[in-house]
């Protein structure tokens, strides 16, 4: 059979497939009716048979090239992975996120240790020499502390809570995403982000303590701080996972280790993002609110923190064992 004869006998199938494909590419698979969807699968299988025939009989031909391109365009639509459903998202936060966290809890411990050591170093530095705070904290903020004023009061008197919340959580999610992505610098960038955040907290705490501002500061930060810092540390852990894959790939090649650790790490950092949205709202609406008593804010902070860790350490245990059994 000549190429042209082959084209003539089979072209109707290809044309049909292409028109379905164009429709799909324009408006996703949902645009197809049930029969069209079924037809897409059938036509794709017919095409692969034609492709196999062309590979044997017309190597190096335009015909082969064309069929190959048509098939490779259709392939990703025919073999789709799991689609995104509400139940799937729920399942992710209920089981996947805590399970992934527990499987990689040592990275979280490492991330938290770096943070606490940095905070302690920052506090000690300021304890011995107050000027040291100037290295890491903006001079404006230091001025507020010197005047025994909470800088947050000024900030929230100017910016409405709704706008402030949005700015806070978009900024925090950016930090979390960056801490993860910087893992590709062999973990150095992630280490620096965690360290800077630790140093800042240590310095501010100690500086406030020296100017007897610790009370108002703790009143402001506890409601959101416990969970917020924890989530940044989880994102840091995700970055450290990527960094470790590059530094010490173990039994894998670096390339494989990167893909394996990356798949887990991205779950952690994506799982953390919605929590940061909620914490941004708490920080914008509850933390700076003078009408709410300090005790209540602290209780809320501790409650949210406990909720986070209970969820991360206890949720999805059952389903992980059933998975292993089956």
């Amino acid at each position: 059979m000549t190429p042209t004869q082959f084209i003539h006998t089979h072209k109707e199938h290809w044309q049909q497939l292409e028109s379905l494909l164009v429709k799909t590419e324009r408006c996703r698979l949902r645009a197809l009716t049930r029969t069209e969807l079924k037809r897409l699968g059938q036509l794709y299988r017919i095409l692969t048979t034609d492709l196999a025939y062309a590979q044997t009989n017309f190597p190096h031909s335009d015909l082969l090239l064309t069929l190959n391109q048509l098939a490779s365009r259709t392939h990703p639509y025919v073999y789709r992975g799991q689609s995104f459903t509400f139940a799937g998202v729920l399942q992710f936060f209920r089981n996947d996120l805590p399970q992934t966290f527990r499987a990689n809890v040592h990275y979280f411990v490492l991330s938290a240790t770096i943070f606490l050591v940095a905070a302690a170093l920052g506090a000690i530095a300021v304890l011995f020499n107050e000027e040291a705070a100037g290295i890491i904290i903006s001079p404006k903020l230091i001025d507020y502390i010197h005047r025994h004023e909470m800088w947050t009061e000024h900030f929230f008197s100017v910016i409405p809570s709704s706008v402030a919340s949005t700015r806070i959580f978009t900024n925090n999610i950016s930090v979390a995403f960056s801490a993860f992505a910087l893992g590709l610098t062999f973990g150095v960038g992630t280490f620096i982000i965690i360290t800077i955040n630790g140093l800042m907290l240590g310095c501010i705490l100690m500086l406030c303590a020296r100017y007897s501002m610790l009370g108002p500061l703790l009143e402001f930060i506890t409601a959101h701080g416990v969970v917020e810092i924890s989530t940044i540390l989880i994102a840091g852990a995700a970055g450290l996972m990527v960094g470790t894959a590059l530094l010490n790939p173990g039994n894998h090649t670096r390339r494989d280790a990167l893909a394996v650790h990356g798949a887990d790490a991205v779950k952690l950092v994506l799982g953390v993002a919605p929590i940061l949205v909620v914490m941004g709202l708490v920080e914008g609406f509850i933390s700076p609110q003078p009408a709410i008593p300090a005790e209540l804010k602290m209780a809320l902070g501790l409650f949210l923190g406990a909720l986070l860790y209970l969820h991360l350490f206890l949720s999805g245990r059952k389903s992980s064992t059933t998975n292993r059994v089956s």
């Binding site: 490779s72 392939h75 990703p76 639509y77 073999y79 789709r80 992975g81 799991q82 995104f84 995403f177 960056s178 993860f180 992505a181 910087l182 590709l184 610098t185 990356g262 798949a263 991205v266 779950k267 950092v269 994506l270």
Partner: peptide, 26 residues
């Protein structure tokens, strides 16, 4: 051009997030 999995299949949401969150690095 189009992004595909190594095996030629479609990418999932997690794949799309993963390859694009590290854009600040590359």
């Amino acid at each position: 051009i189009r992004v595909l999995k190594d095996g030629g299949g479609p990418i999932s949401f997690l794949d799309a997030a993963l390859r694009n969150l590290v854009r600040i690095i590359d």
